[in-house]
Design a protein around this nucleic acid. Structure first.
Lengths: 331, 331
DNA sequence: TTGTACGCGTTATCAA
DNA sequence: TTGATAACGCGTACAA
């Protein structure tokens, strides 16, 4: 392991001088600079990030908290896009990231979680899909000991930003489009996410607005973003409704497959625009969002927080469309 | 940030004593031990892993190298299971892991990659789906500067173990079963993985064995595990074959959808047993493997390497079956 | 059984 | 403009 001492020795200078060259201090003569750079090059020296982290007062390490525990398997696709987006930005900003799965924190209390994160010298968090059961994370956000960016949870404070799309209007648009494409609608089944969640409530508001406008009866059931539950709900309430609006594509798939089994047709729409949809060959309206981009934007917001800005809420664009197989496999 | 000094002060002992308690040294009186433990508890102290890593001579940090770059999107599912499996074992062994995507190393040369990894104090690697284009990683394995475990690449040396299933017999079995279920087979299209890959060659051998036994004509094309390519190949060669064997489920899906478009039927079989298959509602034979388990086993093998054992090759079980929707969504 | 002192690789301060 | 030295938080011989 080649260290700064080796470089200093080779270049014939003090290690503090090497450090200065590496960190672009201005007060270094061109001559010593080039000597050092030459030695660095020859030895293939790269600073030990562990030691850097230990010695610096501020050293930013970002924890990416991905939620794969609850619900079905196919949030995989979304989580993976979140991760890749964040990794790309991390590289761009030269900031270290560490991946966590929220299930890791399940058996810990608040104190343990913060201690654990701090012990890894993590001072920033990007939290994807914060679920309301996760009291620890809520407390972390509230206490502001970490810089946080929340993806799809509209909480902000001085050290917390949030990135999401406009769930209200997106839900409104996709549902409206789906209902208008079909003739007679007098009873709509809405398979919502988890009871009490921020997003769930926003989207529910949109459905109520639509209900006022169209004057249909609205049946609301909570599928917890779980396709199996959505399936059960559809088997139970699908027949007596004449359209089904789902708060996620996954639940929409569960609903459609249930309808197929029941051998009846009902218009269904989803939310997310996941590629999996293309494989099912189901053509339904959905809200397509770019998860990779959303994650990147979250990282940009984090950078702003680190640069001293206060937390803010930002939104990303979306598109109401259908996902088809050929689009999905092209790339 | 509460440090070992704070604990020592609170407990009224020297920090070295605290360290001994924490690292389970035997030569500590019960009295001081409990004093220290109490202080640790009250302060919520967790050792700073960065400092630990710096001070220890050997500190194991594992880099998980996941390949999401090449081919289609739906390796996502597999990669995610690899990651979760490794994370669980990491927790069990108290070893730190860091996630990398192999695309991160694309523009680097060998020296840069090793320097980068070492700068992060990484001394172990678990490499999933090493592709033959990745010269850097091959060199890393060869040089033995890192302890490596390869998943699905049967290379071993003193510091390198590998975990995979028996690709030869698995390919043989699934293909044989598929062919036997259908009446007359005289020409088989085999859509292989990447040309020259280890796995690809093993599986190809199995197909040749089968060819000898059954006496059919074997057409081999390389789909590079890419469903779009598999689709193109099927469109071109599907009609004149009367069965299609694919080296991955993804390619098999591409083939089936192409056949549907061509409006002809051919028996098709896949490989991997991914859950996505359940969503396509295609019932085809495939080789089902447990990716999560495979990743865990890889971690166990890594542990053995760290404990001084020499690298070895191990295999995991597989099952020839079909993947159906209800099995997939149940859990 | 406990405490002292040093080293790990780096940055930061201050004197030269 | 450079270099010596003290941190950073921890583990660990070695001395007490």
């Amino acid at each position: 392991m080649v260290s700064i001492n080796d470089v200093a020795k080779k270049a014939g200078v003090a290690k503090s001088t090497v450090s200065k060259v590496l960190n672009n201090y201005s007060l270094v003569s061109d001559e010593t600079r080039s000597k050092v750079e030459k030695a660095v090059e020859e030895l293939g020296y790269v600073p030990n990030s562990v030691a850097v982290s230990l010695s610096k007062k501020v050293f930013n390490r970002v924890g990416l908290i991905v939620d794969i525990r609850h619900n079905s398997q196919f949030v995989d696709e979304i989580s993976m896009q979140y991760l890749t987006g964040a990794f790309e930005k991390a590289k761009e900003y030269h900031i270290e990231v560490v991946t966590f799965f929220s299930s890791q924190f399940d058996e810990m209390n608040y104190k343990q979680v913060t201690a654990y994160l701090k012990s890894q010298r993590i001072n920033c968090l990007i939290i994807y899909n914060l679920s309301i059961e996760n009291k620890n994370l809520y407390k972390i956000i509230e206490k502001q000991e970490f810089y946080c960016v929340l993806v799809d949870s509209p909480i902000t404070n001085d050290r917390t930003s949030s990135v999401s799309l406009d769930h209200y209007s997106a839900q409104y648009e996709v549902a409206k489009k789906t209902l208008q494409e079909n003739s007679y609608i007098d009873r709509v089944l809405y398979i919502a996410g988890g009871a009490g969640g921020y997003i769930t409530n926003r989207r529910l508001d949109a459905m109520k607005k639509l209900q006022e406008e169209f004057g249909f009866e609205l049946i609301v059931k909570h599928g917890d973003f779980n396709e199996y539950k959505a399936r059960e709900i559809t088997l139970k309430f699908g027949k007596k409704s004449n359209a089904i609006v789902c708060a996620s594509d996954l639940m929409a798939i569960g609903a459609v497959f249930a309808l197929t089994e029941m051998d009846i047709y009902r218009p269904v729409c989803g939310f997310d625009g996941i590629r999996l949809m293309g494989y099912t060959k189901i053509a339904m309206n959905t809200v397509k969002q770019n998860f990779n981009l959303k994650s990147k934007q979250a990282f940009d917001e984090l950078k702003k927080l680190l640069d001293g800005e206060k937390g803010q809420h930002t939104e990303i664009p979306y598109e109401v469309c259908t996902i088809n197989y050929m689009d999905v496999i092209q790339k």
